[in-house]
C-alpha cells in the first residue's frame, strides 16, 4: 500500500467542507430573511383584517387570507388608474430615452462634425445638474405650457438622457471598423447601418438602458408629486401616497396598495435581472 510518491497537499476533510458550506448557507439565508422581512410583513398585513393587525402579539403568518383589501385598493384607491398611468408614462419615457440616446450616440460614435468632443462634454455636464435643483423653473415651464396634470408634463422632460447616450456611444464604439467599412461597401446608408447593424449589435446595451430607464421612470416621486393633482394622471407612487393619507389606519388596504405598486417592477427585476445589473453597473464598471 505504501508508496514513495509524496502525497499532494491534503484537501480539508469532507465534513469540514460540509460545515463551511452549511455556515455559508446559513449566513446567506439569514441575510435574505432580513432583507425580505419588510416585504414579508407587507404581504401578510395586506391579507389580514385590520383587527388582526392591531392584535398583540402580532400574528406573523396568514391563516385565512383576505383578498378583499386588494379589491378595495383598486376600487377606493383608484390603483388601477394609477398603474395604467405609470405604465403609460414609464413606457413612453423608456421608448423616448432609447430613441434619443440611439440617435445622439450614433452621431457621437460614427459621424464627424465640428465641436463633437465639446458637445459630448456638454451632454455629460447635464449629469451634474440634479433634477431637484431645477424643479422650480421646470415647474414654471410645464405650467406655462399648460402641461400640469398631463402625460406630456410627466414624460417630455425626461425624454433625453446623457447616461443613455454615453452608454450607447460606448457600445457603438466597439463595433469593429471592418464592419463599418463592409457596411459602407455593401451600400448601407447611415440610417440602414444604425438600424440594421449598430443597434442590433449593441442590443445588450440597449436592453440595459431600456430596463434602467423603465425602472427610473416607474419609481419617480418628486416630479409627479409636483405636477399631478388629480387622479387622472397620477402615477402609482403618488397614488400610494394618496392612499396612505386617506386611509392611514387601514393597514391592510395600505399594504395591499404597496404590494400592487411594487409588483410590476419586481417582476421586471426577476425577468430582466441581467440587463438591469448591466445598466446599473455600467456607470461603475467599465463595459
Amino acid at each position: 500500500m505504501a508508496t514513495n510518491v509524496p502525497a499532494p497537499r491534503r484537501r480539508p476533510f469532507r465534513w469540514q467542507r460540509v460545515a463551511t458550506e452549511a455556515a455559508q448557507y446559513l449566513a446567506l439565508t439569514v441575510a435574505a430573511a432580513v432583507i425580505l422581512g419588510p416585504v414579508y410583513i407587507t404581504v401578510i398585513y395586506s391579507l389580514q383584517p385590520v383587527e388582526k393587525i392591531f392584535s398583540y402579539p402580532p400574528q406573523l403568518y396568514v391563516t385565512d387570507p383576505q383578498w378583499d383589501s386588494y379589491k378595495r385598493a383598486f376600487e377606493t384607491g383608484s390603483l388601477g388608474r394609477y398603474l395604467i398611468n405609470s405604465f403609460v408614462v414609464s413606457l413612453a419615457i423608456t421608448a423616448g430615452q432609447v430613441t434619443t440616446s440611439v440617435l445622439a450616440a450614433y452621431a457621437f460614435a460614427f459621424l464627424r462634425f465640428p465641436f463633437r468632443n465639446l458637445l459630448f462634454v456638454v451632454f455629460l455636464a447635464t449629469l451634474m445638474v440634479p433634477w431637484e435643483v431645477t424643479i422650480i423653473p421646470n415647474y414654471q415651464t410645464i405650467s406655462t405650457l399648460g402641461w400640469l396634470d398631463s402625460y406630456q408634463g410627466l414624460i417630455v422632460p425626461f425624454l433625453a438622457t446623457a447616461f443613455g447616450t454615453f452608454l450607447l456611444r460606448q457600445a457603438f464604439l466597439t463595433v469593429p471598423r471592418d464592419l463599418r467599412d463592409a457596411a459602407a461597401m455593401d451600400g448601407y446608408g447611415h440610417i440602414g447601418f444604425m438600424l440594421q447593424v449598430a443597434v442590433p449589435l449593441s442590443r445588450a446595451a440597449v436592453g440595459a438602458l431600456a430596463v434602467f430607464s423603465f425602472l427610473m421612470a416607474w419609481n419617480q416621486y418628486l416630479w409627479p408629486l409636483l405636477i399631478t393633482n388629480e387622479d387622472e394622471h397620477r402615477t402609482v407612487q403618488i397614488g400610494l401616497k394618496a392612499l396612505v393619507s386617506a386611509n392611514i389606519d387601514e393597514f391592510n388596504l395600505v399594504m395591499a396598495g404597496t404590494v400592487i405598486a411594487a409588483a410590476p417592477i419586481l417582476a421586471l427585476l426577476v425577468l430582466f435581472q441581467k440587463q438591469l445589473i448591466r445598466g446599473l453597473t455600467s456607470g461603475a464598471i467599465k463595459g
Partner: peptide, 26 residues
Amino acid sequence: IAMVFQSYALYPHMTVRRNIEVPLKT
C-alpha cells in the same frame, strides 16, 4: 466594387443568407 476584409467583416447577428443578401437589399 466589392471588398473582402481580413476579418471577413460578416454581420454577426445575421444568418449567412442575410449576410449575402445585404448588398442586394441596399
